[in-house]
């Protein structure tokens, strides 16, 4: 069950490249794991390490203190590509708790929200403003659905109401879904009856 996420204040790490796909976030060759924990070491692996495994000194992800950068400010269409939930697992384990972009892929959004990792979509002007002030703390207030940079803003962002409530309260979505079991059973019975009903004359 994810820990509740209400507000988050942090410096942002700017990765301005557009279309950061989930193969960049965690390369496929690390997907032979059967665990969901401990994948932070593999986050953006090929951006951070040479083929021989040595760290790239110029890679920004090797230079920052992950405990100080909980928010990623990423280029358009973040999280596109494969459906691997390993992507939000790796980002979360590395230390990130949210990504702000001008658009975020559907499946990544769905996966992120189930793992206490908040995807925030803002307009280009807001994105540009945040990118221009990377050292200034940004607050993402999920309760108010606002992004603030210092005393600037706030800028409203949209989030699916149920996902928001789940994040705020640390709701277990599978447990919530199980509450619909009587409806699911009724649905299956009705489908079974339709399938075995005699053809109308």
């Amino acid at each position: 069950m994810p820990e509740p996420l209400k507000t988050l204040t942090s410096k942002v790490l700017v990765l301005s490249q557009a279309n950061i796909d989930t193969d960049q976030i965690i390369p496929a060759r690390f997907l032979t794991t059967t665990e969901s924990r401990g994948l932070g070491a593999k986050a953006f692996y090929d951006w951070r390490y040479e083929a021989d495994g040595s760290a790239k000194p110029e890679a920004v992800l090797n230079r920052i203190d992950p405990t100080e950068h909980r928010i990623l400010l990423a280029g358009d269409n973040f999280g596109c590509g494969s459906s691997r939930e390993h992507a939000p697992w790796a980002l979360h384990d590395y230390g990130f708790r949210a990504v702000i972009s001008t658009s975020i892929a559907d499946i990544f959004t769905s996966n992120a929200l189930k793992n206490g990792f908040l995807p925030v979509v803002v307009d280009q002007a807001t994105w540009d403003d945040l990118a221009a002030h990377p050292d200034q703390p940004v607050t993402i207030d999920l309760e108010a659905q606002e992004v603030r940079r210092g005393n600037h803003g706030p800028v409203a962002f949209a989030v699916e109401p149920f996902a928001r409530q789940c994040l705020l309260d640390g709701v277990d979505t599978l447990g919530w879904l199980q509450k619909s079991m009587p409806a699911i059973e009724a649905f299956e019975r009705a489908a079974q009856e339709r399938a075995t009903a005699p053809e109308p004359a």
């Binding site: 969901s36 459906s83 691997r84 939930e85 769905s110 599978l174 919530w176 879904l177 699911i184 299956e188």
Partner: peptide
Amino acid sequence: FGIGTSEVAHVLATQCLI
């Protein structure tokens, strides 16, 4: 459509998705 691993668990357990 494609789903993440949390949703794979949802479908295994309930045959449904949110």
